[in-house]
């Protein structure tokens, strides 16, 4: 069977497994309700701010905040987005690794623990299984964040913050921009999960790895090691959010290369290990 078909079959099964499991459904519900509540809270702040400062000044403030976080160019381009979505963006970027770790910690470890993986390894290449698991987890996370965003869009539309077209266009665009970074987190999660037979150990290690990556990023930022800051997948946002297409494509490409390296390493280790 062609590897791509194997990958697709494993990914589809992984997506279903995540979305049908009690854990997956609970996280989906929590994320969606969290998205709605956050959007509501941000909207209230926005409304209060608009009363005090006026809409123009508030937009100016948002642009300044985006400029401080990224650069002037990105600040200018994002200033046209609905302001609540703009504040939702960093929250969803920052929470992505947490969501990935909670959904993905047992992607391989539980199958290894109960040896369920043995039913798959006689039928599909180990590499296909690994890549399919990454793809399936990424699809599940992407759907989960989409649901979160969709609830937030619904809340904001209900509150009349902006037009439906503007909300959906900007919402979909900002959501799509988080996907490449999510892919890297998913690849790392499956790589770690494939090293342990105990899901609990996998979860703890994953948290340590994610926090470690963040700490390395902080250290690199303090020392101005530009390349090292890119080890933290979320740091690609400064490229991906750029209005310049080439820069944005470079950010996406960087994420894809990062994810490919991690996935290849994980697939190689998984292919060599006893199951």
């Amino acid at each position: 069977m062609p590897p791509l078909v194997e990958i697709a079959l494993v990914a589809r099964r992984e997506l279903r497994r995540n979305l049908r499991s009690a854990k997956g459904l609970l996280l989906l519900a929590l994320s969606a309700s969290g998205g709605g509540l956050t959007a509501l809270a941000l909207h209230k702040l926005h409304a209060a701010g608009a009363d005090t400062l006026g809409p123009e000044q508030l937009e100016q403030l948002a642009q300044e905040a985006a400029t401080r976080s990224y650069n002037e160019e990105i600040g200018r381009s994002l200033s046209h987005a609905p302001i609540t979505l703009l504040f939702l963006l960093p929250i969803s970027i920052w929470l992505a690794p947490l969501l990935v770790s909670l959904v993905g910690f047992d992607t391989l470890s539980s199958d290894l623990q109960f040896r369920t993986i043995r039913y798959w390894t006689v039928r599909a290449r180990r590499e296909s299984i690994f890549i399919g698991k990454v793809a399936g987890l990424w699809a599940a996370i992407s759907l989960c964040t989409l649901a979160t965003q969709a609830v937030a869009w619904g809340v904001l539309l209900g509150k009349g913050e902006s037009s439906a077209v503007e909300m959906l266009t900007w919402g979909a665009k900002l959501w799509a921009m988080t996907l490449p970074m999510g892919l890297v987190w998913c690849a790392i999660a499956v790589l770690v999960s494939g090293q342990f037979r105990s899901p609990m150990l996998s979860m703890l290690t994953l948290q340590v790895v994610f926090i470690g990556i963040w700490a390395v990023h902080l250290f690199a930022k303090m020392r101005d090691y530009e390349w090292m800051t890119r080890l933290y997948p979320n740091n690609f946002d400064s490229l991906i959010l750029s209005p310049d297409l080439a820069t944005s494509a470079l950010g996406v490409f960087g994420c894809l290369v990062y994810a490919a390296i991690v996935t290849a390493t994980g697939a190689l280790l998984f292919a060599k290990r006893d199951v």
Binding site: R17, R20, S21, D111, F114, R115, T116, I117, R118, Y119
Partner: peptide, 8 residues
Amino acid sequence: DALLPSGE
């Protein structure tokens, strides 16, 4: 000793 996938 391989368990069947519990959620399926």
